[in-house]
Design a protein around this nucleic acid. Structure first.
Lengths: 164, 164
DNA sequence: GAAAAATAGGTATTTTTATTCAAATATTTT
DNA sequence: AAAATATTTGAATAAAAATACCTATTTTTC
């Protein structure tokens, strides 16, 4: 229980560097590195990491990490490796339409970002909704785009003045 | 046995347009369309199509078609067409409110539709978010409802002129 | 700092998925 | 067209993965 973070990281590396066809197999590889957990735990870990099992050309199956974006997102949520809490790396663009802002992120980043915006309890932002790669944020009616940008700049690598 | 090709095609569409969490579920959807096969066959079909099951944001699982490149290879071998289904059968209604459009679909169809809208990269549509039966799409500020309808008409069985 | 809430993880079990085996259907070869 | 070969599939079963339930620990809240 104490080092889930580390375990997830090792799992990612094991999956990246090996052809792992089942959770039991993964379990054995982990055990060899000193992490003894049951299949149940791995099922939960893999769900969290959003790994998937795909058919190989050889007719077997292997676990893969779908794509780097998703991975980093999941690991950020888990507090794995990355240090920065404030700046979201998944940011792609931000645009406004009326009192709404649409923040595009790399796939999988949206919910984490929306969560952080919500948690900041900024009165300028009435609420957010997140999809896989999009955050919709509704602004209070008297809040300008510039003011909103200043709020978002707390989370995103943007300069409060530009729009992109 | 004679129409495996067709079945694979339908499976792809079902997976694209629905949240399917298990092979049994898929089996039922297929059966509703006249394709009665056992779970064993679906396991083999899905292996061939290289679909994978991933965790959703909601804590469930759903099958997805991993990515177009790999997919096309596999499906070309099978003689299955990847051509994007233009008309979404799950469509129920579309309404506008300010710069936002609300598209109602049959249950489960929303994310597939939103995905297709996103993938079209239409500049008129800033972004979409899908629930189970609703897609929320935000329009660029200078885009009229009529223009938006023309965009949506590429996906939905609507005439670019009416609203319903 | 105690109470409450959230998180982590094991065991046992259920649910889901993959495969073995046999048979039927299709395809190719001669 | 018959024989040989390959493909498709279901039934049964094996294998794998997910989860219900419970307990312990950590984190948050008051």
């Amino acid at each position: 229980m104490k080092n889930k973070r580390l375990r997830l990281q090792i799992i990612v590396e094991l999956i990246k560097n090996n052809c792992i066809g089942s959770q039991d197999e993964l379990s054995r590889l982990l055990a060899a590195r000193g992490y003894v957990v049951t299949q149940a735990t791995l099922s939960r870990d893999l769900k969290q990491l959003r790994t998937t099992k795909v058919a190989t050309d050889l007719g077997n199956y292997m676990y893969i990490i779908p794509d780097t974006n998703n991975l980093q997102d999941t690991m950020l949520q888990q507090g794995v490796s990355t240090a920065q809490a404030g700046q979201h790396t998944g940011f792609v663009s931000i645009q406004f339409s009326g009192h709404a802002a649409v923040i595009k992120t790399r796939n999988g980043y949206a919910s984490g970002l929306a969560y952080d915006i919500d948690m900041s309890k900024s009165p300028e932002i009435l609420g957010t909704i997140a999809g896989a790669d999009t955050v919709f944020a509704l602004l209070r009616e008297d809040v300008s785009h510039e003011e909103a940008m200043r709020v978002f700049a707390r989370f995103l690598p943007i300069t409060p003045g530009e729009e992109a």
